[in-house]
Design a protein around this nucleic acid. Sequence first.
DNA 1: CACCATTTGTTCGTATGTATA
DNA 2: GTATACATACGAACAAATGGT
Lengths: 241, 241
Amino acid sequence: MTLPRTAGVTLWRQIVLNLERDILSGAFAPGEKLPTEMELADRFRVNRHTVRRAMVVLQEKDLVRVEQGRGAFVQDHLIEYSVGKRTRFSENMALQNHLPGGTLLNKDVVESEGEMAQALQLPAGRKAVRMDILREADGRPIAIASHFFPLPRFTGIDEMFVQKSSITACLTEFGVADFTRVYTRITARPPTQEEAVILRQPRTRPLLVAKSLNVDTRGLPIDYGCTRYNSDRVQIALDKA
Amino acid sequence: MTLPRTAGVTLWRQIVLNLERDILSGAFAPGEKLPTEMELADRFRVNRHTVRRAMVVLQEKDLVRVEQGRGAFVQDHLIEYSVGKRTRFSENMALQNHLPGGTLLNKDVVESEGEMAQALQLPAGRKAVRMDILREADGRPIAIASHFFPLPRFTGIDEMFVQKSSITACLTEFGVADFTRVYTRITARPPTQEEAVILRQPRTRPLLVAKSLNVDTRGLPIDYGCTRYNSDRVQIALDKA
DNA sequence: CACCATTTGTTCGTATGTATA
DNA sequence: GTATACATACGAACAAATGGT
């Protein structure tokens, strides 16, 4: 394909429009790898730099994402993770027609310490159950959630989760009929190697990190959590509904 | 300093406790560079691996952040950027005793297109004013905000911002007595080279990206924005107040 | 642009102590 | 006691990112 070099539109802009059309029309499917920059340069009969200039624009438009050494990929549809007073993982996924999943990666009893102790108002010396859960949607990993439940109140919740595989269901068993989100604080950082492997994402893509506290109906803290989302598949939504 | 190798505490854990104490006591100030891994290894008379192991733990505790090729730094206090129905930059900073600042980086008139057009409900062919603003707190850059105001309603708002340097004040002049946040969607991605330079951050540290829509009291969309926060200095807070 | 020193990141291999069956 | 498994600790080399010349 040879692009007209006479019209009032620069070559790189024509390439942008061309690829934009192909992506939006579905000729390149979401998640699919685009041809390499050299292949595109050959196809449009231009220099590779001209293609690169177009790719920068496509990235700004969130239509593609480029990974050094791997290639350019059509941006996947992002799962919207809604955060509000009543945030429940399963409900959240169901609302968007995603099949929720959860695997217990790790469980442990830890000393009260640092942020976790402060959030749960745990005095020094008291302990908490830590559970690391891999969150999945449609069979694909989307987040690693570390939850801390204060002891002795929630003794055995880890064993129970293996059975029920739902935190909400477990809490109900412990007499927590309802709970609400007190706060959520969101940051971003690169993943550790382990996190990248578990979430099946390149180390160059950041994590969205949400730290949150849930309390029961009496206002007692019951669950401090730190959830690390794959930022290629998830966006956090705050709708004022 | 030689660490006891006989006690019931492993070497790397002793190093964690040692550095933790020095950071919390202020012996290493926030933002300061720690000694290199080799220097710490010499100081504690251990192998570099043993120091690295301790650093992993300190990172998990959010006490330090490590940058390849540069070193390890004591984690700075994070500015909390609160997001809610009534989100105003200046108020937000003032509440936390930060001195707010804003510089107009760039202004432009753009065709309605993509997400922006959809959010502002702008038909094809209509235009909008785009303003890129560098947000600062205490003189340090914390975010780049791109705002889109629909035309013709807000003709000249860019000129006005140069005078007033406050979006809220400009909107008041245009008869917008009050406005509210309809939604905020948060993602994360690596910065472009330009963004990294402007925000004075390494390219290895991610941006927090918040896309948001504001409407006036009649529910008409007036401002679509895409704000890119330096994730080393800012965390987004959602308090249920 | 290339080149270099500094610093962190990764991967081999090796040795040792400490539980546990 | 012995065998096995696992975590701890050290050593050397190389890769990758950064910053300066």
